[in-house]
Simulated scan of single mutants.
Amino acid sequence: MRLSVNDSAGRRTIGAALAALVLGGGAVGCTKGAAEESPALTPAAAVAKAAKKTEDITSLHYRMTGQVPPEGKVSGEAAMRMKPLAMSMKMTAEERAADGPVEIRLVGKAMYVGGGAQAAKDMGGKHWIKFDMSALGADKELSADQLGGGAADKNPAAESSFLTGSKDVKKVGTETVDGVRTTHYKGKVTLDEFRKSLKSEDKATREKREKSLDQYTKLGVDALTMDMWIDGDDHTKQFRMRGTADKGPLDMTITFLDFNEPVTVTAPPAKDTVDLAEMMKGAQQG
Rank of each mutant, 00 (worst) to 15 (best):
M1S: 11
R2S: 10
R2P: 14
S4K: 01
V5F: 12
N6V: 12
S8I: 13
G10M: 09
R11W: 03
R11V: 15
R11K: 15
R12G: 09
L18M: 13
L23Y: 09
C30S: 12
P39W: 05
A40Y: 03
A44G: 08
A44F: 00
A44R: 07
A46D: 06
A46E: 11
A51L: 03
E55Q: 10
I57Y: 03
H61G: 09
V68Q: 00
E71K: 06
V74R: 02
E77S: 10
K83S: 13
A86K: 04
M87Y: 01
S88Q: 09
P101K: 04
V102M: 11
G108Y: 06
K109L: 01
Y112D: 01
G115D: 05
Q118P: 04
A119D: 06
K121F: 07
G124I: 11
G125T: 12
Q146I: 13
G148Y: 11
G149A: 08
G149T: 05
A152F: 08
D153N: 14
N155D: 04
E159N: 03
S161Y: 00
F162N: 00
F162Q: 01
G165I: 01
V169W: 07
K170Y: 03
K171R: 09
K171H: 06
T176C: 08
T182M: 08
K186G: 05
K186F: 03
K186Y: 04
G187R: 06
K188V: 12
V189S: 00
T190C: 02
L191P: 01
D192R: 05
D192A: 14
E193F: 07
E193P: 02
S197K: 05
L198M: 12
S200I: 13
D202K: 14
E207I: 12
R209T: 03
E210A: 11
L213I: 14
T217C: 01
D227Y: 14
H235L: 14
T236S: 02
M241A: 13
G243S: 03
P249R: 04
M252D: 05
M252H: 05
I254R: 05
T255Q: 07
D258A: 15
T264Y: 00
T266N: 06
T266R: 08
A267K: 09
P268H: 10
A270I: 08
T273F: 04
L276W: 15
E278I: 08
M279C: 00
M280R: 10
G282A: 06
A283N: 06
Q284T: 14
Q284Y: 07
